[in-house]
Simulated scan of single mutants.
Amino acid sequence: MKVLVTGAKGQLGSAAVRHCLKSGLTVVAVGRQGLDIVDERKVAETIAAEKPDVIIHCAAYTNVDQAEAEPTEAFKVNVVGTRNLVSAARIIGAKFVYVSTDYVFDGTARKPLDEEQTTSPLGYMDNQTSW
């Protein structure tokens, strides 16, 4: 099985890469310099070329305080970038795994959430996100 991990140089992404490698999976690890997830064309090309079975999406605008000061940039990375990856995954039939926090979802869900779930952020973007 081939897994593509975004945000592979970050704390979560590097842990995901290590775990996948220990499990004997083929891993394509991409960081910000290797794949700008906001670039829809580049994302589509990369996913089409790599053809992963699974995408583990760990890339995000994670500096919460700075995100409050730069909501447009945070939105581009966290919403547009994620949408680009989901769209590319759908085209090739890849499974998509996204680890979220209570900054996107409020933590009240009692079952797994899918990509169509309405967000319930606890920060600046409260109920302002729309696909």
Rank of each mutant, 00 (worst) to 15 (best):
I47N: 02
F105R: 05
V30G: 00
T46D: 00
D102A: 11
N84F: 04
A44M: 07
M1W: 00
T6Y: 00
D65Q: 12
K2D: 06
K95W: 00
D126L: 10
C20P: 03
T82S: 10
F96S: 01
T62E: 03
V17G: 04
I37H: 01
S23P: 01
Q66M: 13
S14I: 03
Q66D: 14
V77P: 02
V43E: 02
G7P: 04
E115L: 01
N84S: 06
A15Q: 11
T118W: 03
V27T: 05
D102I: 13
V3K: 01
A89D: 04
K76D: 14
W131Y: 13
Y61F: 15
L35K: 01
R18C: 06
N84E: 08
V104F: 04
L113E: 08
Y103L: 07
V28N: 05
A15C: 11
Q11G: 08
A16G: 08
G10K: 06
Y103E: 08
A59L: 05
V99D: 01
G7E: 02
G13E: 02
E115R: 03
R41V: 13
A16H: 07
L12D: 10
M1E: 11
A44G: 08
V77S: 06
V28R: 07
V64Y: 12
E115T: 09
V43F: 04
V80E: 08
G31A: 09
I56N: 01
R18N: 13
D114R: 09
N84V: 07
S14G: 03
K42D: 12
P121T: 12
S100I: 07
E73P: 00
N127E: 14
E116N: 15
V27G: 04
T101F: 03
D126E: 13
V17L: 06
S23E: 15
I92S: 01
F105V: 10
G81K: 05
C20A: 15
G123Q: 10
V38Q: 09
A67Q: 02
A74Y: 06
L35R: 01
L12I: 12
S130R: 14
V64D: 09
L12F: 11
R90Y: 03
A15F: 03
L35P: 03
A88L: 06
V97H: 03
A15H: 09
L12R: 01
T101D: 10
I91A: 14
K111H: 15
L113C: 08
Q128H: 08
G93E: 06
Q117S: 14
Q66P: 00
R41T: 15
T82I: 10
L113P: 06
V38P: 00
V79Y: 05
N63F: 09
